[in-house]
């Protein structure tokens, strides 16, 4: 699948939350581990419900986990990368 412009902090957050495995995150959000792998790698942009599930799993606002970037815009101010 095409690489999306959606950056995310899932990998970092997993390690900060007790070194949560991809399978554990997948189980908590009701998807397969492959989908978590694809999201982390930026190969798949999750649906809004799934993005909210991931955000609630980490107990953070959705924009702290996902940042949309395109040619015309700067990275989000809430992004840890900014």
């Amino acid at each position: 699948m095409a690489k999306s412009d959606l950056k995310n902090q899932i990998r970092r957050l997993r390690f900060e939350n007790g070194e949560m495995t991809q399978q554990q995150l997948a189980n908590k959000t009701g998807v397969t581990r492959q989908t978590i792998i694809a999201i982390e790698a930026g190969k798949y942009a999750p649906s809004l419900p799934l993005a909210f599930k991931i955000a609630r799993t980490f107990g953070m606002p959705i924009e702290d986990i996902f940042q949309y970037e395109d040619e015309d815009s700067q990275p989000s101010a809430t992004s840890p990368d900014a």
Binding site: M1, V31, T32, T35, A38, P46
Partner: peptide, 12 residues
């Protein structure tokens, strides 16, 4: 026991 089909699979 595992999820076999999720939203990404459905898109594919």
């Amino acid at each position: 026991s595992k999820v076999e089909l999720d939203e990404r699979d459905r898109v594919i």
